[in-house]
């Protein structure tokens, strides 16, 4: 599933970028994130509690800040697996300066497997929108603080 869109954050680009690469902040950005532990260069082990209707549960995974070009570009790679299968995603965030605010363009792809794929497909887009919306809401809160 492809994901694409943009979102304005009411904070300067440098600030937004700093938040996005700060492990403490990431833990607060990721919806349902219960734990985030460093695991190598720019990689973190995470525990997430996700809720996609019948597929809710605890998921374990990794977050990798794969590419960093401050303050304009960041590539994120996320893996997660749980009782209902797995959801892996990779995407880029491009930060554009807009009169003291930041316009974040995001584009990526999510791969799911197991029960999430076989019964969750039709819930997936909605769930992804929800998770992304939550992520940016958290980002707004962190960056404008």
């Amino acid at each position: 599933m492809k994901i694409q869109g943009n979102q304005t954050i009411t904070a300067p680009r440098e600030k937004v970028f700093r938040v996005l690469v700060d492990p403490q902040a990431i833990a607060r950005l990721l919806p349902g994130c219960e734990e985030l532990e460093p695991a190598g260069a720019d990689t973190y082990d995470v525990k997430l509690k996700l809720g996609i209707a019948a597929l809710s549960g605890s998921y374990q995974g990794t977050v990798k800040l794969a590419e960093q070009r401050p303050p304009e570009r960041l590539r994120l790679e996320v893996t997660s697996r749980g009782p209902w299968g797995f959801a892996d995603g990779a995407g880029t965030l491009e930060l554009e300066e807009k009169k003291g605010k930041t316009l974040v363009h995001y584009a990526g792809e999510v791969k799911v497997g197991g029960m999430i794929a076989s019964i969750g497909q039709r819930l997936l887009e909605g769930a992804a929108r929800l998770v992304i919306g939550q992520f940016f809401k958290n980002l707004e809160k962190e960056a404008s603080a």
Binding site: K111, V112, G113, G114, M115, A117, S118, I119, Q121, R122
Partner: peptide, 14 residues
């Protein structure tokens, strides 16, 4: 099956 080999018609809803 999708191109990744996931059965997307995995129940009687689909």
């Amino acid at each position: 099956y999708d191109e990744n080999g996931q059965l997307v018609t995995g129940e009687l809803m689909d």
